[in-house]
Simulated assay, not measured.
Amino acid sequence: MSAKPLSSAEQSKIMIFVLAMLPTIFFIVGIIPALFLIFGTFMMKKNNDFSHIETAVRNYKCYVFLALGVAALFAMYYATTLGAKDRYDRDGAEFIISLAFAGIAIIYILLVNKLFLSPLASHTDWVANNGIFTNKPKKITLQGGFEDIDIIKGERLKSFSVADELIKWAKLKEDGHISEQEFNDARKKLLQRG
Rank of each mutant, 00 (worst) to 15 (best):
Y63T: 14
I104A: 13
F39P: 00
V70P: 00
R87H: 08
K61V: 08
L66E: 03
A67M: 13
Y63L: 15
A56H: 04
I38R: 10
A71G: 15
A71R: 05
D91F: 03
A34N: 00
I106F: 13
T80R: 08
N113Q: 08
F95P: 07
N113D: 14
G83L: 01
Y88M: 02
M76T: 12
F39L: 13
F42Q: 08
F74Y: 09
M44F: 03
L73N: 11
N47E: 13
C62N: 13
T41D: 07
L115N: 00
V112C: 03
K61H: 02
F50P: 05
F36G: 01
F39V: 12
I104F: 05
D86K: 04
Y88W: 03
V57Y: 06
A100S: 12
I97H: 07
C62F: 12
A67G: 10
F65G: 00
F65T: 01
A100F: 09
A100C: 10
L82F: 11
I109Q: 00
F36A: 04
L37C: 06
R87S: 10
F39C: 09
V64N: 08
F42M: 11
G103P: 04
Y77K: 10
Y78G: 12
V70N: 01
A79L: 11
K114F: 15
L35E: 07
N48L: 08
D49R: 05
F65A: 04
K46W: 08
F36H: 09
E94H: 03
D49C: 02
E94R: 01
I38W: 13
T41N: 10
A93W: 08
L35P: 04
F36E: 01
A72P: 03
A102R: 00
L73F: 15
Y88I: 01
D49Y: 04
K114C: 07
A56C: 04
I106Q: 07
L82A: 14
I53N: 02
A72K: 09
S98T: 01
T81I: 09
Y108D: 09
Y78H: 15
T55K: 14
V64D: 07
G92M: 02
N48W: 04
R87T: 05
K45V: 05
